[in-house]
């Protein structure tokens, strides 16, 4: 988010100059554009949030932790199965969103990002609204920055849609209190919530990096479905590559390999090595693919 806002501010100067000439005809005191306006961002968020398909997607995201929690509650006798996070669900409600992340980061959350990011430019081009969007006094660079910022916000939204319903159903079914860590220590309830927030922020960063890839792909085509499918292919191929031990030299450079590092936040003290390596790669992906999208989009002929 902060990266995108920085870009946003950097991009504001040329667009402000442009808008000054465009609206300078207005009577009265000379129009002074605000140095920083969130209007385009807000409009973008309204578009994302208002789309029925996105709302349905959020429902699916929220349903997973609820299904998992209820299934675990009903079969509490064999809670030893299915990995550490799954088996810990019965001990503390906050493990429900964490276990849900384990499941959803493989497919559903990247799918949500693929939908959003594929739509971002290609969707507008497909509907024919891109050229109208470009007539407003906003530079293409700024438009791209706002698009990316809204995708980051969308990623956070998606992560919270897993975390909050998951936490509510988990606390309702399994209670809330001190949380055991993987290291065998116990966190107070407040610390446990803090760890969950850290996990949410980390996963948001990870998904935002994927959104940058999607934004770039979205500038290459006018078919949003094509862009979304391409992002999913990137994700699935990455998961397959991560499963091939002979390619271990490549793994540190794959986004998905770093997503599961969110479990490092459940150690005591937090093992920062893996999440920090992840954050570095996420930032690299965001910068490289956003600038790729910028190189492609700001020189592109918009014909639809």
């Amino acid at each position: 988010m902060s990266v995108a806002e920085g870009l946003d501010q950097a991009a504001v100067a040329p667009s402000a100059a442009a808008s000054g000439t465009a609206t300078g005809l207005a009577s009265g005191p000379a129009y002074r554009p605000k140095p920083f306006s969130t209007r385009l961002f807000r409009s973008e968020m309204t578009l994302i949030g208002g789309r029925r398909r996105n709302q349905m997607g959020l429902l699916v995201l929220a349903a997973m932790p609820i299904i998992m929690a209820i299934a675990t509650k009903l079969t509490a006798s064999d809670h030893r199965r299915g990995g550490d996070l799954m088996s810990s669900m019965t001990t503390n409600g906050l493990f429900v969103p964490l276990a849900a992340f384990m499941v959803e980061m493989t497919m559903f959350l990247p799918l949500a990002i693929a939908m959003l990011s594929g739509d971002s430019i290609a969707g507008e081009a497909n509907l024919g609204t891109l050229r109208y969007l470009l007539t407003v006094p906003v530079s293409r660079t700024r438009l791209l920055a706002v698009k990316f910022a809204s995708l980051c916000a969308g990623a956070f939204w998606g992560v919270l849609t897993v975390a909050i319903p998951g936490a509510i159903i988990g606390i309702a079914l399994f209670g809330f209190g001190p949380m055991p860590t993987l290291s065998g220590s116990t966190l107070s309830a407040g610390e446990a919530v803090g760890r969950l927030v850290l996990v949410c922020l980390y996963l948001t960063a990870g998904l935002s990096a994927l959104a940058a890839v999607g934004l770039f792909i979205s500038t290459l085509t006018e078919q949003p479905i094509g862009a979304s499918v391409a992002v999913m292919i990137v994700t699935i191929v990455s998961w397959i590559l991560v499963g091939v031990p002979q390619l271990s030299w490549l793994h540190p450079w794959l986004l998905v390999d770093h997503w599961m590092a969110f479990q490092e936040f459940l150690r005591d003290p937090i093992a920062w090595d893996a999440p920090l390596a992840g954050l570095r790669l996420f930032a690299l992906y965001a910068v490289v693919f956003w600038t790729l999208a910028w190189a492609r989009f700001s020189g592109k002929d918009v014909t639809s």
Binding site: L284, V288, F289, T291, L292, W294, A295, S298
Partner: peptide, 17 residues
């Protein structure tokens, strides 16, 4: 330079990599 020579934009991501 980015407006007069649009292809130079690609130098930015290339430089980052």
């Amino acid at each position: 330079i980015f407006t007069t020579r649009p292809w130079t934009r690609w130098a930015v991501p290339t430089a980052a990599v």
